[in-house]
Amino acid sequence: MKAHRNKILSLFLAVLLSWSCQEVIDLELNEADPRIVIEGEIVNKNTIHRIRISESLNYYDTGRMNPVSDAEIRLLDENNNVISGFIYNPQDSNYQTYDSLRLEIGAEYKIQIEINDELLEAKGKLLENATLDSIYYLSDKEMQALGQPVFGEGYFLFVDGRLNNEGVEYFKLDVIVNDTLRNSRGALSNSILTSEFFGKEFQALPVPGSFEEADTVDLELYTLNEDVYQYYVEFINLLFNDGGVFSPPPVNPDSNIKNITNPENEPLGFIQFSSVQRRSLVIKKRD
């Protein structure tokens, strides 16, 4: 819902910007001590699970973030039994589990990270994913023939299915076209979904964006815990924050990783606990 407000605001700003000019300016900024940045994904499928730990950069630094290689990481179940440790892989600067692990849907897991003599902890539940009954597409001409509004040309994907958990559910839908993840800030904004205003069943739910003939489209649907969904919402708000009078004061997204030793010193980033499903299709020309 807020997205529609933002679209109108974007339109208005686009009109304003037609009168405006933009320029890169030199602005002196504070240079704070580096902060710990953590990004991780724990999923149900049988895979090696990875977590990346780095140090933040000064704003104008153009290099990559320095990896942190001396952390100790472990995966625990809901009874605090260690399931696996993580080892640092200097090839990709990630920490990874020793082996592939299939995790259980419906179970709660915990990640503990010991770094700089502080204990960090994140936990989450692998929720049952939605059931996707069918995925199909219509061309812009077919949609016009059906009396549906169309913005742009190409093919548009729709999904039928149902939700499987009680209460509001949260998802992230990654759209991969010809092996390339759509990851612009607009695409990220469209990928975060909530069932707050939806029923348990959905039909002709649009997949964001349009597609071209012969595109191979992979859809990856991740379940999200509410705290990670909220993280994404705040992260996207910050991505779109232009520092103007229509934007709220910028604040860091609230991480789901808590510092047990020193609660004031929360890291940046998050660890996502998800069940995931992948569907693929190729767009074929319609007569």
Binding site: P34, S54, S56, Y59, R185, F235, P250, N252, L268
Partner: peptide, 23 residues
Amino acid sequence: GAAVTFPEGRYIMNGQNIPYYDD
């Protein structure tokens, strides 16, 4: 000029460069 909050640094997350602030 208006009183505003400027970043203290930046990091990369979800493939996005994002500034961070002193909360």
